[in-house]
Design a protein around this nucleic acid. Structure first.
Lengths: 161, 161
DNA sequence: TAGTTCGTTCAGTCATAACTAAACACAAGT
DNA sequence: ACTTGTGTTTAGTTATGACTGAACGAACTA
C-alpha cells in the first residue's frame, strides 16, 4: 500500500497505534462509531491511499465494517475514494481539509436548531413572555454560532490556499 | 410550581410538548440522554424553578432519572439548583446563559484534541513527513477553532450584559 | 425514638447500534 | 461456464448505556 512509513521503529509504531486508538475514543464521544475514528486516525498517520483489504487487515476489523464506515466518512467529506486504472480495488485517502468539512455538518445542525426555536416561538402564545424571551435567546445563539463557524471555515480555507 | 404559564391553551400545550420532544431527540444526537434534552426544553418553555417531584410528574420519568440527568445538566452548567428557606425540596432553574456554558465544554474538548495531536507529533519520527504535516494541520485546526469559540462565548456574554 | 419526605444510588431490564460473518452481486480473467 | 477478487448488504450477536424501581441515607418532625 501507499500508506507506509519508513524506517520501521518500535516506538513510532506504538505511538501511532496509541494515537489511532485515541481518535477512536474521541469519535465515540462525537457520536461516531469507534472504527470510523480509528480509520480517520490511520489516514492522518500514514501517507497516501489504502485499499479496503489493507485497512481491514491493519485495523483488525471485518470488511463489512470497513465498507460501512468508509461510506460514512465519505459522506462526511473526510475521506474520498480514489481508483486506479487496471485495479479493481477501491482506495481511500484523506480529503483536502477534512476538519473544515466536518464543521459544515455542525453548521447545518445549528441551523436546524435555530429553525426549531423559531417554530416554537411562532406557535406559542406571545403572552408566554418567559418562553418567548428564552426562545429568542436560543435562536440568537444558534444564529451567531452558525455565522461564527462559517467564518471559521472560510478562514481555514483561506489559509490553505 | 413556578414553572407555569397561563392561560392554558390546547394548541400551545401541544406546541410546547412537541418542542420538548424535539429537544430530547436533539440531545440524543449530541450524545446526551434524551431525558436531559427534555428537561432542558421544559425549562426553556416554562418559567422559573421547578421541583424534582414536579419534573418527574410532568415528564413522566422516574425520580432516579430526574436525579441523574439534573446532575448532568448541572455539571454542564445548564441548570442550577436553587433552595428556598423552610423548604426541603430542591428546585432547579435555567442557568444564566446556558448555551455559552455548553460551548465552554466544547472548547475544553478541542484543547484535548489539540494536545493529542501535539503529543503524537512529538512521539513520531520527524521523517514521517506526511504524518507530521497532517498532525500540524490538525493542531492548527483545533487551536483556531478553540480561539474562535472562545471569542464567540465572549461576544455572547457581552451581548447579555 | 419512630415516622416522613426528600435526593441519591444501584441492580436489573430493555433498547439501540456497533460489529461480525456470511451471503450476495458484480466484474474480470481463464 | 467457472473461478477469483472485489464491495455491499443483511441477519445475528454483542456491548453499551438509558431508564426504572426499589433500597438506602440524610434531614427534618412529632
Amino acid at each position: 500500500m501507499d500508506a507506509e512509513n519508513s524506517p520501521r521503529s518500535e516506538a513510532a509504531e506504538a505511538a501511532a497505534q496509541a494515537f489511532i486508538e485515541q481518535m477512536g475514543l474521541s469519535a465515540e464521544a462525537d457520536g461516531l462509531p469507534r472504527i470510523a475514528g480509528r480509520m480517520w486516525g490511520f489516514f492522518i498517520i500514514y501517507d497516501g491511499s489504502c485499499s479496503f483489504a489493507q485497512l481491514a487487515e491493519r485495523l483488525q476489523v471485518s470488511r463489512g465494517s470497513i465498507s460501512t464506515n468508509a461510506r460514512m466518512l465519505r459522506d462526511l467529506g473526510i475521506l474520498e475514494r480514489v481508483t486506479r486504472p487496471g485495479d479493481r480495488q477501491d482506495y481511500y485517502q484523506l480529503a483536502e481539509n477534512p476538519f473544515a468539512r466536518l464543521l459544515l455538518g455542525y453548521v447545518e445542525r445549528m441551523r436546524v436548531s435555530q429553525r426549531r426555536a423559531e417554530q416554537a416561538q411562532a406557535q406559542l402564545p406571545s403572552d408566554w413572555q418567559g418562553a418567548q424571551r428564552r426562545l429568542a435567546e436560543m435562536q440568537r445563539f444558534y444564529h451567531t454560532a452558525a455565522a461564527s463557524t462559517t467564518a471559521l471555515i472560510e478562514a481555514l480555507d483561506a489559509d490553505t490556499h
